[in-house]
Nucleic acid binder design. Structure first.
Lengths: 148, 148
DNA sequence: CAAATATACTACTAATTTAGTAGGAATTAA
DNA sequence: TTAATTCCTACTAAATTAGTAGTATATTTG
């Protein structure tokens, strides 16, 4: 499961992506309200996202956050990794949270590892080609579909 | 990530699957040693797997555990679910650990949910058709491949 | 029957992770 | 100068994970 932090990060970045072309920053409290994310927690998350280059910020009155890259360039896999949400089912097949498997004498010939490797690849295939723009597009499609 | 419990469960069941046709039970301590699983922890896990119908047991001297079903019938998805390892990335798309998403006004039109739903389906497709027999087969194949 | 060897079962516990919160410093616009 | 905002450090409470301890119960074998 992804931590809430990761989910909040994706939600917040998507909110910023929606207004990307407005060229005006969005306040933390605005995002917190519309996305129903605890204010202070979101503050910490956005700060981290800033340090990782996803967003930029403007301080002081009329300040706020804005996307630092084009929403098409920000992939869900990037966000997940940067906010500590591992994609792999086991550490021994994780690209970013790799840990040697203590039990296995030989990882290369582990049958279980072979399976979870396949699962990771299937998941990553989707997450690494889905951008913030795609998330917004999906939302729009779903809305249309449910209007009818 | 899957909890260690789940990983240990799969490892232990695979060990039992290997000797399935011997018709003799395997002692906890034997499994614990060869799979490098903490003895007492494995004891608790096997007991749970027994209550869930995966394995049977024989008490007393010469006792131990054995698979209660044919290894081809036991799928990784079953084991993962029964030992508390969620497959989905978010609770709102989990079949067995579903929880309503507090943030979403409408889950049906959530773009993020749409993506993680796709990821869950891709993962499940693999895990629900991979049996203990398949895990052993993969292991054998990997061994041959690495011998050359 | 007694001893040895298993599993069965209940009840803890210690460490880690998660999901936050509190409070003030720094910055900027009006 | 004041109000509004982000920046930053330092906590904290609750939940989860990964076990362990100890004893009861069952079974084989001599």
């Amino acid at each position: 499961m992804l931590p809430k932090k990761t989910k909040y990060a994706i939600k917040a970045l998507t909110a910023l992506a929606v207004v990307y072309f407005d060229k005006k920053p969005l306040r933390i409290s605005q995002i917190a309200e519309t996305e129903k994310i605890p204010r202070k927690f979101l503050e910490a998350i956005l700060l981290e996202l800033k340090n990782q280059g996803f967003v930029g910020s403007k301080m002081g009155a009329t300040g706020g956050y804005y996307l630092a890259k084009h929403p098409e360039e920000i992939m869900l896999s990037h966000i997940i990794r940067s906010t500590g949400g591992p994609i792999a089912l086991l550490p021994c097949v994780s690209l970013n949270y790799y840990e040697k498997c203590n039990e296995c004498k030989d990882e290369i010939t582990c049958g279980l590892r072979d399976v979870v490797l396949e699962v990771r690849e299937a998941s990553l295939k989707i997450l690494s080609k889905t951008s913030l723009t795609d998330v917004i597009l999906r939302e729009k499609r779903l809305l249309r579909k449910n209007m009818k």
